[in-house]
Design a protein around this nucleic acid. Structure first.
Lengths: 321, 321
DNA sequence: ATGAAAGCGCTAACAG
DNA sequence: CTGTTAGCGCTTTCAT
């Protein structure tokens, strides 16, 4: 059965409060008493009840990380690195997934202000009005910071990559490698994709490069086709998206000279393209920034501001065939 | 400020206990009273404090999922599917990562029995004696089930893939595709790798197929090399491992006829091999089995048994070039 | 149908 | 240095 402070107090003939102090290394307790208490605690396999502690102390040292899924490299790495990083601050990170399900998202979001966490980092679901949920947390003084996704209409703090510059750099690299026209695979499925799409178009227009936007619904209708072999840049979010686009249009694309551009990583050789360029997002900086803000808030109670933290791309990589 | 039952009680001129009942839809409370209470609760933005509830009720409906990382397909998918699956049972899943760090692992493991979770599913770290940690949880009646990794010397419940059969089927497929000799890339880094290695060797021996075990430390010393072009099977845990092995031995391997075999997924074409065969583990079945067991335990308090649940492979896929 | 009261396990004043 | 006391917010008997 569960050992409590009471059990230890009885065993030591001390008051429960002294035991509590002894275990939290309070300077007021005699060293000798401390030792006895600690030894008894160990012998009885004492473990503090965090729910009780939280109730009494008003904090849990737990931070919540709510993500859509773990399929993206950024989110995966952020989760992995964030766990370690937060540990070094004496906190714990609890990750939860909403799988882009609005109901789950809302439910998880609401759980934040239920007394078990001191704050949260959230990669939002765009189908839901996060502002309401965010305001809920604010009202209860629970700090929340958004991660990766950024909605212009929301008054919330956000940590995000500098997607605008990233995309333009990727296109520049493709152009250097000889790309003469582009397929842009970004869609409108979330705010990151939107920004990337918008920036791509803006930059391609500015440079007078022909392009076609290919949303995932109507991939088979490639307009810009020509019989002669050309150098084509294909830019999209991930290796997976690019590869499946390629497969769907293999007949045409396999006859062309291709240059792929995407984010975060590329596994294997650049085949069937001639070159792959990709932008590695600085997930460490992103998640640590978010964590720093949250922790700072819980320790100082100075209110969190509705700021945008744009984190530059970590590195641009080029794979040659 | 935080609204509590007390605030609602005051506002409604009711006792706090009636409010509590009304909000939990207790049949004893008059419908009219219930409606009033609920309306006031909403107006005051009432949210229950889970720590307090947990303390009073003795359960949290939270299950802990402790994983090494999210880099593996199995773990990622299990986390994703598990979150949804457990929601349908009225529970929540909290994922935490130990990044193969023994200290973090121990710390997270110990957190399980700290009163915030009703149970846990754990992908263990082999550097740590999990038995002790497991016994700790048992003593406090916290159900724990191990996931994926299986240690023969531990008396614990475990859900794992049928790796033995999986490996033999993969090898069979390679042989059918013409493989005449093998490189086995499994190592001893964890219990799954160990079983896969052992089963590979056993099966290759039985079928008199020449093979070489290539641990990641000494990859450059390939023994079985010949000048003539041969059909070579390369079997390992993931696409990543196989590709990096290939790269390290490109001079020799690029002249050979290759067949790759691995687990869970393969992105892109099978190039530079002729065929890729891979075994998709049934992560849905694995995680749902684990969740079912944990939930069953928390609801019935019937003690969890030290059983092994072997989940068969979901599907074997073959990619042709 | 509602209220009163005990208590879950712990922390944190306040005494002494 | 240690004990006493009063909660934290909620659930749950036991009365009425």
């Amino acid at each position: 059965m569960k050992t409590t402070l009471k059990d230890i107090a009885k065993e030591c003939n001390l008051d429960i409060s002294t035991v509590s102090r002894a275990l939290s290394n309070d300077v007021r307790v005699k060293v000798k008493t401390k030792n006895i208490v600690k030894e008894v605690a160990q012998r009885l396999h004492y473990k503090p009840n965090l729910a009780a502690r939280s109730l009494a102390a008003g904090r849990t040292k737990m931070i919540f990380l709510l993500l859509g899924s773990l399929e993206g490299t950024l989110e995966r790495r952020a989760a992995g690195f964030g766990s370690s990083y937060i540990n070094s601050k004496g906190f714990d990170l609890y990750i939860s997934l909403h799988n882009s399900d609005p109901e789950v998202y809302q439910r998880q979001f609401e759980r934040i202000s239920l007394g078990l966490t001191d704050g949260a980092i959230i990669s939002p679901n765009r189908q839901i009005n996060s502002q309401v949920l965010y305001d809920n947390c604010l009202r209860d003084d629970i700090p929340v910071i958004f991660f990766d996704q950024h909605f212009e209409n929301l008054k919330t703090p956000v940590v995000t990559s500098d997607n605008h510059n990233a995309v333009q750099q990727l296109i520049t690299d493709c152009l250097k490698k000889g790309a003469k026209k582009f397929y842009v695979l970004f869609d409108d499925s979330n705010s990151v994709e939107k920004i990337r799409k918008k920036s791509s178009i803006q930059y391609l227009r500015k440079n007078n490069v022909p392009y076609e936007i290919v949303s995932s619904e109507k991939t088979n209708a490639l307009k810009i086709q020509s019989l002669k072999r050309e150098s084509i840049g294909i830019i999209g979010t991930s290796q997976g998206k690019i590869i499946s686009f390629y497969k769907e249009n293999k007949n045409y694309l396999s006859t062309q000279d291709l240059i792929f551009a995407c984010f975060d990583h590329w596994i294997g050789s650049c085949y069937p393209s001639r070159n792959v360029v990709y932008a590695i997002q600085n997930y460490e900086k992103m998640i640590s920034t978010a964590i720093d803000k949250i922790v700072e808030f819980t320790e100082t109670k100075i209110s969190i501001k509705s700021e945008i933290f744009k984190v530059p791309i970590l590195e641009f990589k080029i794979i040659d065939s």
